[in-house]
Write a protein that binds this DNA or RNA. Structure first.
Lengths: 335, 335
DNA sequence: TTGAAAGCGATACCAG
DNA sequence: CTGGTATCGCTTTCAA
C-alpha cells in the first residue's frame, strides 16, 4: 500500500517530473502553488521515496561499506562510532562488516560490498591481512574496484590512506620512560606484520638510540593485541628479564598483564613503570591511573569519512598521517 | 564499464531471462552447455549484479537496519558484534545507526531506515526514549511501518521483543549479597524509566522482601548507566548511608565508582561488597575480580536476528525473555 | 512552467 | 528448454 511518485502525481494532477522536481527541491521554476500542494500531499500521506529506485536511477547509494576487524575491541568500537556519526551527519549510511580479524572473510566481504552497490569502502584492515606479508596486501588492495580509504594502517602503495604516526607513538612512549630513568625497558608489540606493530617498535628503537641505550632483543615481546597475549607475555617478562618498565603497544595487552599479576597476587604497577597505547577510557579508573599513548580516534574516524567523500567526488589520491601524544598519568615513576 | 546481464546475454547469444535463470541457479531446465557457457562468461568478466536493480525488482534488500544508542558502550558494542555476525552468516547486511542515546535522532533515523528500503529493523532503544514515559514509547513503536524487533527492552505492547529477565537479575544479585550476610545494601540503578532499570530495582525489592529485610528508599540511587554517574553516586553513598554492600545495575557505573575511590585514595572493594551488572570482560582483570550479573549478549544478538528473519518470513509476533545468571567472583565477601 | 518518455538493471510471467 | 516483455519507482533529457 505504499505511496509512489506516480500516485502523488495523479492526486495533484501533475506529472511525475513535477513531483520529482518539487520533492527534491530542484530549482526548476514550478509555481509556488503547486509546490505547496505537492509537498502537502506527500507529507499528509507520509510519502517515502523508494531508495532502490533512486539508486538505480542515479547510480549512487549514499552508502559506505565499513569493514572492521573486531567491533568488540574498544579501539575499533570507538572508531566505528566516530565513523558512523560522521557518515550520518553527511546523509550517508554505514554498511558495517565485522571480519573477526580473518582475512579470507575480509576479502570476501569487500567483494560483496562492491556488489551491494556501496559508493565506497572504508577499510580498517585486519592484522591477519598484514601478517601475510606485503605481496598479499598489495594484491588484495589493488583488486578493490571502488573508491576506498585504508584506515589505521599504512602501506607504501599510492592509495588513499589515513593513519596515526606510530613511529612517533613508539618514540614518545619510550622517551618518557627513559626520561624517568629507565634503561631496561620491555616492549610488547604486535606480532610480526601486525598493523602498526613494527612502526611502534621502530619508534622504541629510535628513542633508545637517541639516548645511547643499547637495544636488547631479549626485551622485545610480541602478542596479538588482546588480553590473552598480555597474560602470556607478562609471565615471560617476569621470568626472563630484569626490566624496570614495560611499554605495552596496546591497552588490552596491558589489561591482560594486570589480570595475570592479580592472579599471582602481585601488583603490576608496584613492580614496573607502565605505559600503554590507545588511551582507552578505562585507564583512568585504575590506581594509579595508567599513562598511555593517546590517539585521537574521533579525528581518525571523521577525517576518514571526509577523505572518503572527497575521494568519491574528486577522484584524487589522499594520504594523511595523524599525530599522537602521550597522556602521562601516574603509572610511570622515576626510577 | 560495468557488465550487465544484457551484455552477458548478448555475448552468449541468449536472452536475459536465460542469464538470470542461470546466474540465480533457478531450477529451470537450461541445457548444461549453456549453463556452463554463461557461467564462464560471467566469471571471466567478473560480473557483479547490481543490487539496486535486484532490490527494486524483488522488493527486498537483504539489509536489516540496526539502531543502537551508543556503539562506544561495551555492552552495546558486543551486542552489535553478535548481531552483525549473525546477520552476515545468513547473507544479510547490517545498516547500523548510532543514536547517541537521543530519542529525536532515533526516531528520525528509523524513518530514514524505512525509506532506505531495509527489510526490517532491529531496534535497541535508547534510554532517552523510555525515560519519556510509556505514551511516547507506544506512539513511537506503533508508527514503525515495517517488521521490527525490540531488542533489550520490554513493553507490554503486543510487539516482537527479546530481552533479558531483569527482575531475575536484580533478584539474584541482591540475593547473593543477602546470603553473605548483608542487610544494608545500596543499589544504583538507572534513572526513572531507563531501560530495565525499574525491573532490576523490582528484583532487588523482591529479594529483600523474601528475606524479611525492610526496604529503605534512602539506599536507592539512580544514574545514567555511565562512568560519570558512578562517580557521583559513590560519593553520596559514602556520605549518606551505612551500606555494607553495593549493587551496581551496570558495570560502567561501577567503574566510575572505582575511579572516584581511587582518587580519594580509598579502596572500593575493601569498604564494600560489590556486585555489578553486564559481566563486562574487564571485571576479571581487577583485584578482586568483580562479581556481576551475566547476560549472554551473544545469544541476545543471534536470537534477535533469528527472530527478525522469522518475523519477516512468517509475519508472526514473537516474544522472548532470556535468563540471566550471577557470575560470582571475589568482590562479594561474607560480612 | 510543465509533461512525455527514455532509461537504470534486474525479475518473472506468459508464450512458444 | 528459451525468449519477449511488462514491471519495479525514480531521474533526467528534450520538447512544448
Amino acid at each position: 500500500m505504499k505511496l509512489t511518485m506516480k500516485d502523488i502525481a495523479k492526486m495533484a494532477n501533475v506529472s511525475m517530473t513535477t513531483v520529482s522536481l518539487v520533492l527534491n527541491n530542484k530549482k526548476a521554476r514550478i509555481s509556488q502553488k503547486k509546490i505547496n500542494e505537492i509537498k502537502k500531499i506527500a507529507a499528509d500521506n507520509n510519502y517515502i521515496p523508494n531508495s532502490s529506485a533512486v539508486s538505480l536511477a542515479t547510480n549512487e547509494s549514499k552508502t559506505i561499506g565499513v569493514v572492521v576487524p573486531n567491533i568488540g575491541n574498544p579501539f575499533y568500537s570507538l572508531l566505528l562510532k566516530a565513523i558512523s556519526d560522521a557518515l550520518k551527519n553527511r546523509g550517508y549510511y554505514a554498511l558495517i562488516i565485522n571480519t573477526n580479524d580473518n582475512h579470507d572473510d575480509e576479502s570476501q566481504q569487500v567483494q560483496k560490498l562492491i556488489s551491494r552497490g556501496v559508493d565506497g569502502i572504508l577499510l580498517v584492515p585486519s592484522n591477519d591481512l598484514f601478517s601475510q606479508g606485503s605481496t598479499v596486501v598489495t594484491e588484495f588492495l589493488k583488486d578493490i574496484s571502488l573508491p576506498f580509504v585504508l584506515v589505521n594502517a599504512e602501506t607504501k602503495l599510492k592509495i588513499n590512506q589515513i593513519n596515526f604516526d606510530s613511529v612517533e607513538g613508539g618514540f614518545l612512549a619510550t622517551q618518557l620512560l627513559i626520561q624517568k630513568g629507565h634503561k631496561k625497558i620491555a616492549i610488547i608489540t604486535g606480532e610480526k606484520g601486525y598493523v602498526n606493530a613494527d612502526d611502534r617498535l621502530k619508534g622504541y628503537k629510535k628513542a633508545l638510540e637517541q639516548n645511547h641505550i643499547n637495544f636488547d632483543s631479549n626485551l622485545v615481546f610480541r602478542g596479538k593485541y588482546d588480553i590473552q597475549s598480555g597474560n602470556e607475555n607478562i609471565t615471560k617478562i617476569i621470568k626472563d628479564t630484569e626490566a624496570t618498565a614495560i611499554f605495552f603497544c596496546n591497552d588490552l595487552m596491558l589489561y591482560g598483564a594486570m589480570q595475570k599479576m592479580n592472579q599471582l597476587k602481585l601488583n603490576l604497577f608496584d613492580r614496573y613503570s607502565i605505559i600503554g597505547y590507545d588511551d582507552t577510557f578505562f585507564n583512568e579508573i585504575f590506581n594509579p591511573e595508567v599513562s598511555s599513548v593517546k590517539q585521537d580516534v574521533n579525528k581518525l574516524g571523521s577525517d576518514a569519512v571526509i577523505m572518503m567523500l572527497d575521494v568519491i567526488k574528486n577522484k584524487v589520491v589522499n594520504q594523511s598521517k595523524l599525530r599522537v601524544e602521550v597522556n602521562d598519568r601516574e603509572s610511570v615513576k622515576q626510577l
